[in-house]
Write a protein that binds this DNA or RNA. Structure first.
Lengths: 155, 155
DNA sequence: ATAATAATAGTCAATATTAGTCAAAGTTGG
DNA sequence: CCAACTTTGACTAATATTGACTATTATTAT
């Protein structure tokens, strides 16, 4: 609505540019000024919304002429990315990160919306319902890895 | 009848908005203040009156700019079949019985082949990987029930 | 060349801003 | 009176915002 948080707005802005051009290069301080936030908030936005789980790769450089580059990666072309994701999941994953990964799979058309929603339902917090959060995250990790591996094989 | 409790009044208010717009986004604290109740009462109202059985899906976010969204969804016709299956599953189910249920869902065209395979992958014995078989069957039951509930409405 | 300075971006922890959970206490209809 | 439902609030969890401090790279002065 009208009072969304500024991080979401910055995210949306950056993604609108990325929808056109696959890759962008920004100056942290400029974006910060444009949206009237402290520069480190840009790092927050990137760290929470432009990770490899989200299907983005980020690189940067400090010093004069410094920049932050954000590029969209594609899970279909790049089988490495699936492996990377499985690696990254390891033996534990939270609902939030899992959601990011499922969303990326949907965006890259590896899952339909219905498939994505079904998979999300299986690993929801209330579904797993463990008192011990470590166990919950461990089971979720196994489920998600299982799904990713299932996607390697075409039906 | 005119002196209903406040939960009913809040329910009616929210549903009157939903009658117009299919989906609303509220700020918990604002609604609580508007009706002069503690914020957690909003959770109570949602939990008791905006369930999936009633055709509502709820999502929320905490933190700055947080919200609660309630959407009205279109329930499919065979909800009573789903109810029966959920009843049948109870709190525990083996891989074999789960497979049977998923196969019947496929035959009834509630799941495609790929969807069925994905769901099976999530509740496979090696995926869940519990030493304690009772726990394994309990988790599988929760996962399968969650899937069935997700099938109550279209995307 | 080297050192000093300027111009970037990164990290991290404190604080703020929401919503969720749970159980105790209160209320009500049968 | 009892069981079910409602109300309340203390505690918890998730997410966002801010700023002080750090790290890296480029440019300028010596």
């Amino acid at each position: 609505m009208q009072n969304r948080n500024i991080s979401d707005i910055i995210e949306k802005y950056l993604k609108s540019i990325l929808a056109e051009s696959q890759k962008i290069e920004i100056k942290r301080s400029e974006i910060a000024e444009q949206f009237d936030v402290v520069p480190s908030q840009i790092n927050y936005v990137i760290k929470t919304r432009f990770t490899i789980q989200n299907g983005y790769v980020v690189e940067s450089k400090r010093g004069g002429g410094g920049y932050i580059r954000i590029a969209k990666v594609n899970l279909i072309d790049d089988t490495d990315v699936l492996d990377q994701l499985i690696d990254l999941i390891g033996e534990s994953i939270t609902t939030g990160k899992a959601l990011q990964i499922i969303q990326s799979l949907y965006e890259d058309k590896l899952l339909t919306q219905k498939e994505a929603n079904l998979v999300l339902a299986t690993m929801d917090r209330t579904t797993l319902n463990f008192a011990d959060k470590r166990m919950e995250n461990a089971v979720r990790a196994r489920i998600l890895v299982s799904v990713l591996n299932r996607l390697r094989f075409a039906d």
